[in-house]
Design a binder for these strands. Sequence first.
RNA 1: GGACUUGUAGCUCAGUGGUAGAGCGCUUCAUUCACAUUGAAGAUGUCAGAGGUUCGAAUCCUCUCAAGUCCACCA
Length: 703
Amino acid sequence: MDKVYNNKDVEEKIYKTWEEKGYFKPEVNPTGKPYSIILPPTNANGALHFGHAMYVVEDILIRYHRMKGLSTLWLPGTDHAGIETQFVFEKKLREEGKSRLDFTREELFKMIKLYVDENRGGIEKQLRRLGFSLDWSREKYTMDKDVIEIVYDTFKKLFDDGLVYRAKRLVNYCTYDGTSFSDLEVIYEERQNPLYYIKYGPLILATTRPETKFGDTAVAVHPDDKRYQQYIGKELDIETVLGKSKIKVVADKFVDPLFGTGVVKITPAHDFDDFEVADRHDLPMVQVINFDGKMNEKAGKYEGLYIKQARRAVVEDMQAKGLVEKIDENYVHRIGLCYKCKNPIEPLPLEQWFVKMEPLARQAIEVVKKEEIKIYPKDFEKRYLQFLENIKDWNISRQIVWGIRIPAFKCEKCGQWEVTAGEVREKCGKCSGKMIQDEDTFDTWFSSGQWPYATLKTTDSLKFYPANVMETGYDILPWWVARMVMLGIYIQKKQGVERIGEQIPFKDVVLHGLVNDPLGKKMSKSKGNVINPIELIDQYGADAVRFALIYGTAFGNDQSLSYPKLEAMRKFTNKLWNMARFIEMTKPEDYIESEKKITNENDNEMSEKIKQLAKEVASLLNKYDFNHAAQNLYEFAWHTFADIYIEDVKNRIDNSSYSVLKNSYLVILKLLHPFMPFVTEEIYHILWKEGESLMISEWPIYE
RNA sequence: GGACUUGUAGCUCAGUGGUAGAGCGCUUCAUUCACAUUGAAGAUGUCAGAGGUUCGAAUCCUCUCAAGUCCACCA
């Protein structure tokens, strides 16, 4: 053996052998009980980042259970990542001086598909570098035909059940990207904008958006506000920049009497709150801004102006007419921004497909409260429940081409909608008019929300449903995990599955924290502080990187990348290596493997301590306490086994003590294998059997 | 506005009712005898602050301060 463990020579060779021998497939343990984890699908077009490296905990669980003899499946997959990918592609187009508007829908889709196909596979290579024992033969993609069929089918069933409906709702629309975003995709930022105090007949109200006044269909006051009691229910004659007009006064509790003058203009087509007020008071909706971000004909002479231009013009004209009471230039408020381009989100009314969430959420709440699904660490349960208890209907339409096109068809003649499970409809069933397919695609989360069922069903692996563990970053708990629970249960119920325990998509939710840069700042491309895990693997070895991510940080907490820790873990792999080297070098010439009788007190103590360690590590892993399992192993291997025991046994090696030494070391290797698969496997080949593998050896269990 | 997380040795972090811990760094010694070293010994902390519960609090409760995150969003 070399004096130093050289990870570079070892890792690639070993991973290749594992894969070739089929050790990653559940069939390696043909009679074992099923145990499965679905890898959160990675962006098909993406590269590895530190979020992915944290999936090492899944590999630990998988390797642990595989060694325990379970038929273990860790299923990889990729996601088409609709908005994200189209955004990246459009950026590329812009750099080439082109725009998506230069192409038809079909052309654009083909181009993006080609672009993604060319860039695919990169991340799979990188996940291999981390040593992940994924069953690559079952890899799925959200755009696989059979996955799409399941998504279609679910959509149709939801529609038939009345859980999908079409409605004109305000959407978070980005007039620059030309698409709507979910609530979760809108980011909020504080901005300082002028607050205009405008005269509406006898009333004065404060607004930041005077240009939307042409869409006002009422003004509102608080029902208990003494100042305005005489106006409630009346219609006011008001003077506007477009001449005389009338407007109704309504009373609604949402108005804060302390803000501004306590009077609010109601613009249902361009404000989320106003939309709800309008709903309660049956007010008409007047859209004055178009999807291109310009004012429309309802804005009279301001038609064709962009929002900002219109605001300036309207204010100037109002000032000329004496309609502006005052302007508060120091007003600070939070406005919604597009998370992609950082431009203000415009609430606009658009016909969309919505999923009625309340009935689905109710079940998802119930399964967690009944502990059919458990969330680790438990603190995250509150976030999950908070999200589901306040859930709003889910807008699943996206105005992008890169995605699964919604299988809904509208009759040109009579306006009838028909939803199919993917089949094309050309003629209207009612009037024989021509049917046209909805241009929109599904929200990416609508397909990934069906991921556990879709992947297992289409790989003929349904015996692994529900998955034992869903492990992911806590940041996508509502976006993804909650939706998988809701859709998973729904799908299984529709399949006629009655037992809750078989409806849920997974049993345990395990959430890891985020990895920040060494200064504790979130890694992001825009900050330029992104660190590529592959570079660290090259430098420290995959085992050291894996161990460093687990060791010394409470599971679920964020951590900052630490170079000293990586270095310490690299030394640990080297220490392990040299323990093996010692054992190899000190083998008694007449040593017989079967010699087992323990005669020395210290040898006896060691074999007892090893049993305790094995129990402790198993118990910690069963609780998803990876950190303490790792700490125990590190502490024991280095300080109990090497510093004390090896030092002690060094000068008195005989057949009996050597047997204890070697067998104890084997247990340490086995317990460490899920954490550090490469170095442990390599040592096993050298000290034990070259043709066999530690990864499919038996996990040490002592009763 | 609602909630969550974090604040412990110079740095990165464990520790959740019983005399303050690890790694790195630092000091001293030993060693090149499995270990691009390793081992032994050592120094270092008003456990963010204040109050409370308790025989006893880093740990439980309340409040304050600071950093970060999620959700909802007031014209």
